[in-house]
Write a protein that binds this DNA or RNA. Structure first.
Lengths: 229, 229
DNA sequence: GTGCGAGTTTAGCCTCGCCTCAACCTCGTC
DNA sequence: GACGAGGTTGAGGCGAGGCTAAACTCGCAC
């Protein structure tokens, strides 16, 4: 085990993508070549070729015509990169004051280049944090992730209360929108009203009385933990 | 001006190498293909090809059979990378506690990847420092370098006093040796004795009475500013 | 002035990593 | 059992960078 011979950036990106696609639903399930291709913005042929390569590398198992799934080794690669990404996001924000909506792009490139030694220094400096600025859990040094079950804000009935725990880091627009309103993961929230037919959800955050309208797409991206009713 | 289309890492490395070779002597002079090839550990043919490419890119002027020199644009590329490198070295040491002898290797890879925005954040965080941990001057944001004239410790006559200002960051062995003896750039020194025929130089540093023997190679790598006699 | 060798350049070729297009194959459904 | 959506394969391209070997300069030594 522990082959660890260096692996191109593309391999890391594919692995990361498979990891995330595998657990879209509530259960880990194989990922189709096309989904993968779409996610990464490449042709189906490219994805197919890369999947074959990952299989050869022992990072994934490819059942032709039936999708791909990561092996344990593959999951480790994905989690390693994820750990880098999230540590970097937090680090860039907290230590260097980079704006919330820009840390993702920076981390996206640095994650592939961060040495283990530097990773360790950063983790130590940050006090081995459990989540990044978006509320996403940071895999621990031994690459385990405490996956909590969350629901999206859009599913919460009017009157629900709980804690806003995370939001995807992928869309800077959303992040700017939330940042401009001082809405951050970790805050308590309450759903005040929802308009029908995919209309906005109205909610309050923290101890602030202001009611914020949150469009469908946004409400869907915001993950919350409901207060045990 | 300001073409700035992305340029491979190799281009940055060659540019950096030319920059440093150009000013080995006291005066900026053309660099031969062979020197360049040797410095970078590639064949003469490869170096020649790359030099031609740099010329095409407007980063260098190549006088066939007579060497290459950087254009202003080329020097800017080199200084930009140098700035990245040295800021990173200082940052890694000061903020992340990486050991002195290891920051160079880390910086060597990160320097090619650092965005301008991050560079600015790091510089600000460090208070826009003038030198890195090895005593090398950090090019300013507008890419000027205050080059001071130094001599090597090896040239200093017995009895000379002054300040140890810098040492090459390239050899981790040397750095470990110096670090283990608490010898650092910025300290005052005095040459106590020298043995003939390339023998060691004996010197004291800071307010410490300990006399340290410094082999020829090491003494040659240590740059000092002599006290105005 | 010529000759010769060290230093340069050129030419041809290779590897690696990744991508595309287009043709072809499979699976599951009707 | 045929059809179409989706998956796979193969041929090929491209950029970056490197290597060898042969051909060519330049300029010093005679």
């Amino acid at each position: 085990m522990s082959d660890d011979r260096p692996v191109g950036e593309a391999v890391e990106d594919y692995t990361k993508a498979i990891y995330s696609l595998e657990r879209r639903g509530d259960v880990v399930s194989p990922v189709s070549t096309n989904e993968l291709a779409a996610r990464l913005g490449v042709s189906a042929g490219s994805a197919s070729a890369m999947v074959k390569k990952l299989d050869g590398l022992g990072l994934a198992t490819h059942e032709p015509y039936h999708g791909v799934r990561l092996t344990d080794a593959g999951a480790r690669v994905a989690l390693e990169v994820l750990r880098h990404h999230r540590l970097l996001e937090l680090f860039l924000m907290q230590e260097l004051g980079l704006p919330w909506d820009r840390v993702h792009a920076e981390a996206e490139v640095l994650e592939h280049v961060l040495s283990e030694e530097l990773e360790a220094c950063i983790a130590a400096k940050l006090g081995h944090p459990a989540t990044d600025p978006h509320g996403d859990p940071i895999p621990t040094h031994d690459l385990s992730v405490p996956e909590s079950t969350t629901s999206s804000l859009e599913e919460c009935p009017v009157g629900a209360r709980g804690r806003f725990v995370r939001v995807s880091d992928a869309d800077p627009e959303m992040l700017r929108y939330l940042a401009a309103r001082d809405i951050r993961p970790g805050q308590d929230f309450a759903v005040v009203e929802r308009q029908p037919f995919g209309g906005p959800t109205f909610a309050t955050f923290a101890d602030d009385d202001a009611v914020h309208p949150l469009g469908g797409e946004l409400a869907r991206a915001m993950r919350v933990e409901l207060e045990p009713a």
